[in-house]
Each structure stands twice: as C-alpha cells, then as structure tokens.
C-alpha cells in the first residue's frame, strides 16, 4: 500500500468523526493536546506494553500520539486511529487524547515520513521517542528525526558505554535536542548527591569520587555520572586522578533494574556514600550519619514523563556529554 492510500487527511477525518461520536456522551469530554509525540518501535516490542506506556503519559503530557511500529520487510502498511480517555478521580468529565498507529515493514519505511508530516499538530512541540536505537539510526527515518524538536533514546540497550557514545554522536543534530533515558535514570543519584552536599563550601568539597557498577563492560550510566561529576566539580583536567571507575560484580543484572551500585565522594571533611545493592532501597551515609531512601526502578513511562517535562536546552546533560570522551579514556 502506498502512502497516498493512507494520506494524513483521511486519518484526521477519521479522528474528527471519532471525536464527534465521543462528544455525544453524557459526561462530555475534554480534548487535550500539548504536543505531538511520535513513538517509533521495532517489531520486538510488546505492543501492549507500548500502549500502556503511552496511555500513562497522557495524564501529564496530553498529546497526539503517533505510534510507528516497524515490522519485518514485507509487512503491510496499516493505520489505525483511536481516542484514549481517562476519567480523573471524582470528576465527571473524561480527558481524551488521540492516537494514530502506523504499522510498516522495513521496506515501506520510507513511505512513512510523508504521512507523519501531515499528522503533526500545528504550533506545538514535536517529540520522538525511539526505544530501539537501531531504528533511530535508519536513514529512512532521518526526515522524522529532523522534524522532532526532541529525540529521546535509551542507550541502556547497549551494554558498552563506548558503543553508546558512538551512536549518540551520530544522532546529535544541530537543531534537535537529544535526550537519553539513561540520563533520566541518574536523576535520583544526582539529586541525592546534591542534597548531601547542599550548603557546603569549597573547603568541604570532595576531591575524589568512586563509581561502581554491575555487569561488564563499562555501562553508559556510569559514563554519564562520571562526566557529570567532572563537569560540575571542575575536574576536567584530572579525570583519571579524581574518578575511580570499577566493576564490582561482573554478572549482568536483569534488564531495567539499573547497573550502578555505588557512588562515593571523599574530601578532607567530607565522606558521602550512596549505595544501592539491589532492589528499591538506597543506603546513604553522610559524614557518619546513615539513612535510607526509596529508590524505585522507574519504568519507561516515568522516565519519559521526566524527559518530556524538560522542553528546552538541558544544560547539564549537554555539558556532561562534552566530558564523555575523557571519561571513556579513564574507564577500565
């Protein structure tokens, strides 16, 4: 089937009709949209899980969602429109967002961008979530990447930081913002460290850090965390001397559970240790005072919620990226 047979006008007309039908309901609906969110996923992704993630997102980031599912070569080009609603607790009006699903084979992928162009909500931001990194790198989807103000990837699918770094460099574009869910997974670590160091001046600054992880080889998460410390603490010329990087358990943990195990900072009058052996708890030790904190494993929806909440330039991520090459040189 060619793209012409699936022109965007027809899909939008279908959606209009669905809205009209919904509008006849007694409770009434609120049509909510703050962006176009394109989710491009490979055939290996569980469609139910993808759907649940997108449905979860609509509460905080109501959007026109375009789910692009890329199957094997020869898979037919198909489209489907739907409207997803949720009823806030204690309210009588449903809040609804529209979703367009496009299924395409690898060989018909180049037909997709023209359809997508017509489906973008005018005057609102466009974000592209590409959980499969290899899909993001396909040349057929380059026009879609160019369209998106923000491209969200998840480099945790690559075990090695070195390989992740190569692909990140390929994806970085002049006009778009690149975001990595691995960076969003670090927010909790960074935030706890910020709180632990809060109020200290230079005299009590740490001069050495140690980061440990599970599973060989050196993971993207440890690369980002080290690069952030180097960037924020002004250690750019002494990465090797200041940051110790070590694998503490060569066995690879289950996917999604996180590979970072500990972060320690030492200074003349500063001893901070964050340790997360496994599970959802984190032990904190600040200058001899111990405490615990919850450290839930965030799913894709929670991480995307955070990323979509950062609409513009993410200064600290961008700055950290510039120190990744130095960290990779220091890595075991």
């Amino acid at each position: 089937m060619t793209a012409a047979a699936f022109d965007s006008g027809r899909l939008l007309a279908q959606l209009d009709e669905q809205w009209r039908q919904l509008g006849k309901s007694e409770t009434g609906v609120l049509r909510a949209c703050s962006m176009t969110l394109i989710a491009a996923a490979g055939a290996g992704r569980n469609p139910q899980e993808l759907g649940a993630t997108l449905a979860e997102l609509m509460r905080e980031h109501p959007s026109r969602t375009i789910l692009l599912r890329v199957g094997q070569a020869g898979a037919p080009l198909e489209t489907r429109t739907s409207i997803q609603c949720w009823m806030p607790f204690g309210r009588r009006q449903q809040i609804c967002c529209e979703q367009i699903e496009i299924a395409a084979g690898l060989d018909s992928l180049s037909d997709v961008p023209p359809i997508l162009f017509g489906l973008i909500v005018p005057d609102l931001p466009v974000a592209l979530w590409c959980p499969d990194l290899d899909l993001a790198l396909r040349p057929e989807l380059r026009p879609v990447l160019a369209l998106a103000g923000k491209v969200i990837i998840d480099s945790s699918c690559l075990p090695a930081a070195a390989q992740a770094w190569q692909e990140i460099q390929t994806l970085q574009g002049a006009r778009r913002r690149l975001a990595d869910l691995v960076w969003a997974r670090l927010t909790r670590w960074r935030e706890l460290l910020f709180q632990a160091l809060s109020g200290r001046d230079q005299r009590h600054a740490p001069f050495k850090a140690r980061i440990t992880w599970a599973g060989e080889p050196f993971p993207p998460a440890a690369m980002y965390l080290a690069a952030w410390l180097v960037s924020r603490l002004g250690w750019q010329d002494q990465v090797k001397e200041r940051v110790e990087l070590a694998c503490e358990d060569p066995a690879m943990p289950p996917p999604g559970s996180g590979r970072l195990r500990s972060l320690s900072l030492e200074g003349e009058s500063c001893a901070i240790r964050l340790r997360r052996p496994a599970g959802e708890a984190l032990a904190i030790e600040i200058d001899g005072v111990s405490a615990g904190a919850l450290f839930p494993v965030f799913d894709d929806a929670a991480l995307l919620r955070e990323e979509l909440g950062v609409p513009g330039f993410d200064q600290q991520f961008e700055q950290s990226l510039t120190f990744c090459p130095a960290v990779l040189e220091a890595a075991p």
Binding site: E191, F194, L233, D314, Q316
Partner: peptide
C-alpha cells in the same frame, strides 16, 4: 563550574531536581 556566587558547591540541576 560547581561553585555558586557564594562559594558554595552547587550541584543543583533546577531543570530536573525538585526543590529540596
């Protein structure tokens, strides 16, 4: 980079961190 005007360490990331 990590020092604020007051000479205090600032690892804050206001874009992401909740105010604490």
């Amino acid at each position: 980079a990590g020092l604020g005007f007051t000479g205090q360490l600032t690892l804050d990331d206001p874009v992401r961190f909740d105010r604490a």
